[in-house]
Simulated assay, not measured.
Amino acid sequence: MTIYLPIAELPVAMFALFALGAAVGFVSGMFGVGGGFLMTPLLIFIGVPPAVAVASVSTHMAASSFSGALSYFRKGMVDISLSGVLLTGGLAGTVAGVAVFTLLRALGQVDLVIGISYVTLLSTLGLLMLSESLRAIARTRAGQPPLVRRPGTRAWFLRMPLKVRFRRSRIYVSLIPVVGLGFIIGFLGALLGIGGGFLLVPALIYMLRVPTQTAIGTSLVLTLVTMSMATVLQATVNGTVDAVLALILMVGGTMGAQFGARAGQGMKAEHLRLLLGLLVLGVGLRVGYDLVRTPGDIYAVTVQEQRATQHQPEGRP
């Protein structure tokens, strides 16, 4: 059954769009990454304008993150205090991201910025996660004990003031880098249509040394709140949220996230990181390919409003 998306101005197959939302919701619940880094490029691939894709995906991520966060909360894998500190910076970053998005859209550069940003972030992060997870798996197969790494005395954030102990995550760090990390995630989420989990989860694991499952659950809480706020701001400020598209993605994403969260909790941490690294790298390479390949339609035609006073013959009103 084909339906018409009013804001995107595009006819799509409803069941295919529902299946797309369910698949990305599964990934969201499994890895705690919000799914926006995958959903936004996929929507752009099928013809949805980037501005509409970024804004509408925020709703899908909020719904799927709620479902996944609830599952992790029931398992006791969410650090509430750490989530609260991250949200302090995340909400401020969301407001700043929507403001920059509005400015870039007015300048006509939002599509280019989104594409380049996706290639840079996804390719770099995917390679780093893939390399680390392969080393961890090799150590496990060799019978060596896993590396238990905690921030050392030379870590820069340990020398900053306002230190707080987060008992659930078993860390003792300054509030300043945690708030800053939340701001970056909120900013990127609003600007690029990503929940930020694919950045936040590795940062919590490798920088703050939060346990993998707790990092995923905490990331889902931050994604839920920041993406809900981004949806409201994008709808009221830019008017780019397609309600029909968002509803279909929301229903599919909520259902898929429940199954993904259960699958993720039963897997080893190093295997989770390996799969996430491969997924992030693959999407980054695909976005990069679309930026450099020759488009099917080389020429584009735009209709501009002609000024009434331009090129008028003399003697005519």
Rank of each mutant, 00 (worst) to 15 (best):
T223V: 14
Y299V: 14
M14F: 10
G25T: 06
P317L: 15
E9M: 13
G252Y: 02
S58Y: 05
V210M: 01
S81T: 14
T294M: 14
M129A: 08
S58L: 13
G197W: 07
V241R: 01
T214N: 02
V27G: 00
G180S: 12
T294I: 14
L162N: 09
T236F: 12
M207S: 05
L285D: 08
S71H: 11
I3N: 03
G108L: 10
E9F: 12
R273Y: 04
S228L: 07
T2H: 05
A155C: 10
V98I: 06
F187Y: 11
P41D: 14
G35N: 02
Q306V: 15
F166G: 01
F37D: 01
I44C: 06
A261S: 09
G126I: 05
I194R: 04
V148L: 10
T218L: 03
G186H: 00
F31I: 08
V178N: 01
G108D: 12
G264Q: 05
V54G: 01
I184V: 14
K163T: 12
L274T: 08
G315D: 12
L128H: 03
G253M: 02
F18Y: 06
E270A: 08
G143W: 05
A19S: 05
M129I: 05
L285C: 14
G182C: 06
V303Q: 15
E314Y: 10
R168Q: 08
Q213E: 12
A96Q: 05
T124M: 10
F157Y: 09
G115A: 14
Q304M: 15
Q234N: 13
D242C: 06
M61D: 03
A203D: 06
L175S: 02
S58T: 14
Y172R: 12
L127E: 03
L276N: 06
R141H: 11
V201F: 00
Y206M: 09
G189M: 03
I3H: 03
S117M: 11
H311P: 09
S219R: 07
V303G: 13
T59L: 13
I184T: 07
V287F: 03
L175C: 03
G25I: 09
L247S: 07
L191Q: 06
